[in-house]
Design a protein around this nucleic acid. Structure first.
Length: 465
RNA sequence: GCCCUCAUCGUCUAUCGGUUAGGACAGGGGAUUCUCAAUCCUCAAAGCGGGGUUCAACUCCCCGUGGGGGCACCA
């Protein structure tokens, strides 16, 4: 069998969202699984709605997700190829050429200044309730699609449709098919919302005498609250939003793979190489899937937890850098001593659900001017004699060994034992004095990272009354 | 309204005629613990309805019902 060629063909008319990303992902997976070619084609035939900004977002999002394209617009290491240009706005000559073929074959006519594609078959008029007007339906030999995911899909009726607008610009159905022919696309993997278009496309392929590609219509992603499919305006829809929030792309990719596909067993978290090995079209589900941000968050945490120390620190720094001047903690963290920054990050890594928690979680490490949470204060000072505990702790830590968490823990335990108290009698007030909150990394690690001077200063400065 | 399509726990899903219907997320309980998480154990939770086919149907067929998509000089 000849080489698989698939394409992802977004139009830069809106922000890049999760459904598009998954379509791109499934195409990419299939190309990688089969050793085929992944083509990126920009469908920018609607001049009025296109924007360069949206185009940049497409490139940036695909790159961030790691969905490298073999052919397409050249961006970084991606792109190039022998079938270009890959933006439809630059392929007008080709569409004219193909239009002539259709005209020569007598398959077009003009109406209202636009050029229409003429279907073959028996015609009859019917009132369309949706459009509130009479339309001409064409009953022809059934267009049969042997869908790789859904099986046999048949459609017996269609309508003639516009292929070139009255302003001279060709329309989606037409350019989509022409480019698939010209770029020798073998498999069309797209959202189920295109299923009803497919008969039109099949008829165009046949009109050109071109081989019809294999189709695979993947189920849609439904919004998590309320009815309907996910759209650009829904919570959690935009890819760049995840990037901004510091979600790990590998977690998002893994999560997306599981929305409509599974390896056939219980495995969920898998390296992408393994997914590529196992992915295939017949394994894709037929039913729509509801987006679940909780599961995504869990996947993200799982990936975060297993990052190596170096990698975690690198990503944390990257995240803070992106926040830049907008965030006070980010500014201070980036300016901090790198070794200290690293220690703070590694202390926090096991406790986080996502990088976006980092600024709030680590703020007090980078400044002495941190707020004290009122509720936490009330809770921490409610029991026992916190003022006494604070004094005792300060005295004990003044001469303690700060080299390791266990050394600090030992010091506090010895102190507690001497007074028939427990570690837990010192922990709340110490945590409050050191961080201003009642949640955070282990107190001993916190002390070790802050160092004796800062710890003693904060404990000494803290006023219980 | 017409056309297409889908249907297992709240959610994502496994099962491809014979299982105590399995896993994951979320939820309840417990263990662990210096807080909060994480982790471990545990509980609760599903075959849309009705007809067939078959010795046997979650699984195959039909009809309902419900969900989703489409019905542009958008893509």
């Amino acid at each position: 069998m000849s080489q698989v060629r698939v394409r992802f063909a977004p139009s830069p008319t809106g922000f890049f969202h999760i459904g598009s990303a998954r379509t791109a992902l499934f195409n990419w997976l299939y190309a990688r699984h089969t050793g085929g070619v992944f083509v990126l084609r920009i469908e920018d035939t609607d001049a009025a709605r296109n924007s360069e900004e949206f185009l940049r977002v497409i490139y940036a999002s695909l790159t961030w997700l790691g969905l490298n394209w073999d052919e397409g617009p050249t961006v970084g290491v991606c792109g190039g190829g022998a079938f270009g240009p890959y933006r439809q706005s630059e392929r007008a000559h080709l569409y004219r050429e193909y239009l002539e073929k259709l005209k020569a074959a007598g398959r077009t006519y003009e109406k209202d200044g636009a050029i229409w594609f003429k279907l073959l078959g028996e015609r009859h008029e019917v009132f369309d309730e949706h459009r509130k007007k009479t339309v001409v339906k064409v009953k022809n030999a059934p267009a049969v699609i042997d869908d790789r995911i859904r099986g046999r899909v048949e459609r017996t009726e269609d309508e003639d449709f516009v292929i070139v607008r009255s302003d001279g610009n060709p329309v989606f159905h037409f350019v989509n098919v022409v480019d698939d022919i010209a770029m020798q696309i073998t498999h069309v993997i797209r959202g189920e919302d295109h299923l009803s278009n497919t008969s039109k496309h099949v008829e165009l392929f046949q009109a050109f005498g071109a081989p019809v590609p294999a189709y695979a219509h993947i189920p849609l992603i439904l919004k998590q609250n309320g009815p309907g499919k996910m759209s650009k305006r829904d919570q959690g829809a935009l890819i760049e939003e995840y990037q901004r929030r510091g979600l790990l792309p590998e977690a998002l990719v893994n999560f997306l793979c599981l929305l409509g596909w599974n390896p056939g067993d219980d495995r969920e978290k898998m390296p992408i190489a393994e997914i590529i090995r196992l992915f295939d079209l017949p394994g894709v589900n037929q039913s729509n899937a509801r987006f679940d941000e909780k599961k995504l968050a869990h996947m993200n945490m799982a990936y975060l937890l297993e990052l190596s120390a170096d990698e975690f620190v690198r990503r944390a720094r990257e995240f803070f850098t992106r926040l830049g001047g907008e965030n006070a903690t980010a500014k201070l963290a980036l300016a901090a001593d790198p070794a200290f920054f690293r220690a703070v990050m590694l202390l926090s890594q096991p406790k986080l659900k996502g990088l976006e928690e980092l600024p709030a979680y680590t703020a007090y490490f980078f400044t002495e001017d941190f707020p004290v949470d009122a509720k936490a204060r009330e809770k921490a000072l409610a029991k026992g004699d916190p003022a006494a505990r604070l004094r005792e702790l300060t005295a004990a830590l003044a001469t303690a060994d700060f080299a390791s968490d266990t050394a600090i823990e030992e010091t506090i335990k010895v102190l507690a034992a001497a007074r028939s108290l427990a570690f837990g009698d010192y922990q709340p007030v110490a945590r409050l004095a050191l961080s201003g909150t009642n949640v955070g990394p282990p107190i001993t690690g916190m002390m070790r990272v802050l160092g004796r001077d800062r710890v003693l200063a904060r404990l000494g400065r803290f006023v219980v009354g």
